[in-house]
Design a protein around this nucleic acid. Sequence first.
DNA 1: TTGAAAGCGCTAACAA
DNA 2: TTGTTAGCGCTTTCAA
Lengths: 333, 333
Amino acid sequence: MTRKRPTINDVAEASGVSRGTVSRVLNGQTNVSLAAELAVRRAVSETGYVVNRAARSLKTSRTGSVVMVLSEPQERLFEDPNFSVLMRAATNRLAERDMSLVLMIAGDDGDRERVAHYLRGGHADGALLISTHEGDPLLEAVERSHVPAVACGAVLGHESVIPYAAADDRGGARQAAQYLVDQGRRRIGMITGPLDTPGGALRMEGFTSVLGRKVTKRKLVYGDYTQAGGERAMHELLRNFPDLDAVFVASDLMAAGALQALRTAGRRVPGDVAVVGFDDSAIATATNPMLTTIRQPLAEVAEETVRLLIALLDEQQVESAVLPTELIVRDSA
Amino acid sequence: MTRKRPTINDVAEASGVSRGTVSRVLNGQTNVSLAAELAVRRAVSETGYVVNRAARSLKTSRTGSVVMVLSEPQERLFEDPNFSVLMRAATNRLAERDMSLVLMIAGDDGDRERVAHYLRGGHADGALLISTHEGDPLLEAVERSHVPAVACGAVLGHESVIPYAAADDRGGARQAAQYLVDQGRRRIGMITGPLDTPGGALRMEGFTSVLGRKVTKRKLVYGDYTQAGGERAMHELLRNFPDLDAVFVASDLMAAGALQALRTAGRRVPGDVAVVGFDDSAIATATNPMLTTIRQPLAEVAEETVRLLIALLDEQQVESAVLPTELIVRDSA
DNA sequence: TTGAAAGCGCTAACAA
DNA sequence: TTGTTAGCGCTTTCAA
């Protein structure tokens, strides 16, 4: 009882015009008489016709899809809800163009080989890179494939070759640092992210640019975007500087760990030590005290990233975009 | 300098056999001489040939892709990291079959129409439904499309028509309730999820099945899987039963809210009130005290879901799977 | 403005 | 075991 799917021929027959004309209507060409257009549209809805993408793709050598490549499973995006915001924005934007989003994970070498193969095979019209690191072998594969690519978040060292949209990591970190200073805090430390990520490098830059020479190296402790890492880093910071009165942590998840370390160490927050996080993720309101943090406009970043990619596909000029962050004051600082 | 992608013809030429033979090798058919196979493989890697999926798809009328449909943005999966676990498992499994995962969101009517259109157009070989609700109009579209579908998490009311893999919500809730009873708690309430979700309905069932008639209706308060909702629900529960000594909350995020309400109300946790959550998400360790909770084997559920779908595509018999949960004891109970 | 027709790259049926 | 060939459904050029 599974009737065959109607093809463009069925529509042509039902509307009394040729396949060519049907195709023109379907693709929004203008050189079609109103009568023909109407007839075709009616036939389309009568027959329930839906274009066969494979056939179209074979002919046009465009696939109508974009691949989203997720690098680095340990990266922050995988640990919090930001990620789904991002995907939602991407699918929405693409859907407007009747394009679809294919998802690939590039966690290990095998994964990356698959992605490279996929791109080389021309299975996608464009690539959306998520949390791709400096030196990631994936980048080479992307470039060799000649598939237009944009990144969500800067790709360190490739900023000029891969357009990107990102939150203003540096500016956000500056906001955080300045806020702590304005609150009268004087002995401020920082728990950074991995320095080969933009969130790691740029947030550290922003922080040090505000505090200047007061930031000794030992006031910067490296975290890995995990909660346990944040906890360890906080303990280290307290060992280095027992009289610390504030800390800026490069992610909310790490900040949750830091909060635990501070509690263990008997410090009150924000009384003894003020804590500012980064992200404004769901975790920020689950901690006690709730985190004062820097909100990234993640949905906007994602939308902008997709906009860039679409512009690139349309062969327009594109320019990377950096979107402003916002200080969200809660209870921890 | 963008040389045209090599086709099967180029490979045939380079290896000195016919297109047909190349195709047979590529598709793993057995009736090919070893010599021919070797020649073809060499030619493939020499030319850098990658199959054109559109052409293959046009011929075979299979697309080599599966669509993952995400319903209900407010659903728990969107609020925590579970979701990425799920996607990772799905892409991995599919990659083994050289299939790809397309993502669609079905949040509003427009979205659903797009999904329906996509399915009707035969753009995917199968569908993976995530957090689809009872009565979701999407279900009808899926059925009408005749595209094989499986669900991650039971689809209430459609359990017999849409195969699924899920965590044992009922059993997990039982574990939680039994644990609280074993700890000597006697006045136990529950904050449920929305009752049209399996996590809402089944966790409530499991809970009440342990506590029996001691559960009056007013000891069950409905939450909406948000933190704010959990907080509100906890306040209500405390109003109804000021001497409550334990609460089971259907998600960690809501439990975080409940913890806040308890703090506001001056109750100590677990001293005055024990709290058990559900999920074992990242939030569970960010709260203070850290949550005792029920862990869902999310990765396994996802893998199993994909396994079901693949079996379905291979026209095998499939049976829904329910995977065991685990009690994770931390500090809140 | 429209129709006719070629051909995108592949698989599979058939013939050898 | 292999080669030949038809044709999947579409877009687009060319001619009318």
